[in-house]
Design a protein around this nucleic acid. Structure first.
Lengths: 358, 358
DNA sequence: CGAATCCACTGAAGCGCTTCAGTCCGATCG
DNA sequence: CGATCGGACTGAAGCGCTTCAGTGGATTCG
């Protein structure tokens, strides 16, 4: 005999299947004694409901899917931490799948989600083309984190990548740096905007001629190559990396060629992941409120379930976390510190702390 | 109208539902032209099979579940990397869930897996009590990674934690260290054995009096506390940490109190995760073949599907990866380097490399 | 030329559950 | 005292699929 079914319980308890179904789900209908009998029998038999049958009959799966780019970047872990709590609380099961940063794999994972009847889906930093995402979201409520979309159907939660990039550049500028290069994140989520933010900021600071972009992927390996590329001409005094992973790749490579941070060159990352703290030399970084983004995603999905049909866009403010990988330019004539700022000072974007909420 | 069903396709293609079902699954039965028609209609309608109905009717879900302790430790990510490939190739969907290191949450996740009819489950570093795991495994083929079990039913893949601990201690001993402390991983997977391995090794090296164990969890915070605990009496010259996360917590704390690594104290971790490389100061660590463990898990599950009923145990050998966080004792009389070894030299356990596979 | 074989295809049962229209019966009410 | 009502419970339909025993016509075989 395989798994016990409702019928097995019904038979042994001497009642109908329908009553067992209702009782097991906590609905009223059974008398006290009957209820107890049913519960007892179910327990004795080790009954576990068949989710497939349940979802087929009720047309609801109580499951939500989370698409992750990859497991190695702690960014994803933090967002997921924010997600799971709220969902578990409201009785949803959270199942995750990886897209491996490959559109093909992502598409197939989404199809799996859909075929499993997931009631909602959270895409964290998807690489998939906008059209595919939009088509998918037309069928199942979706919220995208960390990637801007024009779409009408999809809820989006991002941080303001351009602003974050500007904050990073301004930070380096304030420290006296003028030769500020960018290590690019290629097609990674947010990379394009951070690149744009970098270029804009440099322009606005009249540093147009110093704009240099190297690298081209969200991996440490490409970061190392990017460093080599930069050094081939001359070493910049500061580097703004597209994210922490890239920044750390840069740190390694710089150490490899004998340049010290921050003495020879300052480095700032993006995301403020746990990696930034864990380095012996703390990595300055731009923080996005990752856990809050996860919580927000849960909330948005709930709203969708409750009937909201207009797409929501949430753009959260990034903040600077200053650690020891950025410092003033070492030697030379201290540049005039005429307070030049391109950052909108109205909202609090700088957060000078070292005691990170771990 | 909701999602299109087989009946919708059947009707529009002018054939029976059964034929559509077979054709869409690539089975023979339909003529060339009919086949093409069916495929066309399905495509036009944007048909996505209903996994619930499918799994209900066929009694097979083609899904396997992966239970992760948490997403923050790159150890899990590496194992998962080994897993996904083989499974995707053989047409299985890999769905993951987190247990958050809480037995309660793990149990509930397993129940979810079972209720979804997962055909196999991989538990990575579960904290759950052995009995619960065993009971679960009696129902669905399971393999446990990173945790030893006595069970008859469960396949187990571990590395030899005691041996790994011995290798670590021996390594420090060979560098001249005698005052070697252990930062404990508490109830984390493998922690108990590593602790035991440490104690055994110390005894066999006649260092019984120097045995000191502090800390007590697989987190950086506890590691810091553990360091303080050690320093309260005296600083050891070397520390063997229960895993890399703990080791990194230790590094931070040591830096915080002004002790330099490896000059004042050597530190070695366990797992050889990417974190070990990413530190500016490379963390020496004991490597477990994580990706291979994942691949092996896939293979074991496949064997189970093919009928194997006896439990398999795989104990993989750990190896030493020497980086810059461990070095010889700084000052004092260089201790007699009479070659004393407690490690079985027959198998290659030392792997002195710095160029890690990415 | 009738039987056997094969191919393309159909019909119906049934997977384990939810849902909903009833049924039955004792208590309550006017 | 008959009508009414609500609580406890049942029966049957049906969710979207797979599976399997057929069916019927064309082709091949002896």
């Amino acid at each position: 005999m395989g798994r016990p079914t409702l019928d097995d319980i019904a038979e042994q308890a001497g009642v109908s299947r329908a009553l067992v179904s209702m009782t097991l789900r906590g609905l009223p209908g059974a008398g006290d004694e009957t209820r107890r009998t049913i519960l007892d029998v179910a327990d004795r038999l080790g009954y576990v409901p068949n989710a497939a049958a349940r979802s087929l009959a009720s047309r609801s799966s109580k499951a939500i899917g989370v698409l992750l780019g990859e497991l190695h970047n702690p960014f994803f872990a933090d967002v997921v931490d924010g997600l799971t709590g709220p969902f578990e609380e409201s009785g949803f099961h959270v199942l995750m799948g990886t897209g491996l940063h490959q559109p093909r794999a992502e598409r197939s994972m989404l199809e799996t989600f859909r075929s499993y009847g997931m009631e909602g889906v959270v895409l964290i930093g998807p690489q998939l083309d906008e059209h595919s995402i939009e088509r998918f979201a037309a069928h199942v409520p979706s919220v995208v984190i960390g990637r801007v979309l024009r779409s009408e159907h999809v809820d989006v939660i991002v941080n303001d990548d351009r602003r974050g990039a500007a904050i990073a550049v301004q930070h380096l500028f304030d420290l006296g740096h003028r030769d500020i290069a960018h290590l690019d994140g290629g097609s990674g989520p947010g990379a394009a905007l951070r690149r744009r933010g970098y270029v804009d900021a440099m322009r606005r600071l009249d540093l147009h001629d110093n704009i240099r972009i190297a690298g081209g992927d969200f991996t440490a390996a490409h970061a190392a190559a990017g460093i080599d590329e930069l050094l081939a001409t001359r070493s910049p005094t500061a580097i703004f990396a597209a994210n922490d992973v890239v920044a750390i790749g840069a740190l390694e490579r710089l150490a490899g060629v004998g340049l010290s941070v921050p003495d020879d060159v300052s480095v700032i990352g993006y995301d403020n992941t746990s990696m930034a703290t864990q380095l012996r030399i703390g990595l300055s970084s731009i923080d996005q409120p990752r856990e809050r983004m996860g919580q927000l995603a849960a909330a948005l999905l709930r709203e969708r379930f409750d009937g909201r049909t207009l797409a929501a866009k949430h753009i959260l403010p990034p903040t600077l976390v200053h650690r020891s990988s950025t410092a003033g330019v070492r030697s030379t004539t201290q540049l005039s510190t005429q307070r030049r700022s391109i950052i909108d000072q109205s909202s609090p974007a700088v957060n000078r702390n070292l005691h990170d909420h771990h």
